[in-house]
Amino acid sequence: MSKNWPLWEIFVRSKNGLEHRHFGSLHASDAEMALENARDVYTRRSEGVSIWVVKSSNVTASNPEHNGELFEPAQDKVYRHPTFYDLPDEVKHM
């Protein structure tokens, strides 16, 4: 039984926001305390309407050293972008 408080990553969605964004981290003894601490330290100026707390040990991150191979599949698929397609100038609403 560890006496050290675990580390939690904090994600907050703002009033006008579409998604939760990573705001930082904090230590707390459990999820409930993590939420309350996150409210205290990351939303003092009404920055958010929703908070997610995730134990840092539960976050799996991609390895930037493998970015080349990991993201390679998309690199030669320009046809996923609208600019790839030729349309006559007269066409509207497209």
Partner: peptide, 26 residues
């Protein structure tokens, strides 16, 4: 009071950022 609270918060932001480099709060 609000200013001093902010300073605590600033300490936290910086400790959090520092801990990402592989050092614990302890």
């Amino acid at each position: 009071l609000a200013k001093v609270q902010d300073e605590a918060g600033h300490g936290l932001y910086l400790y959090s950022a520092c801990e990402t480099l592989g050092i614990s709060r302890n």
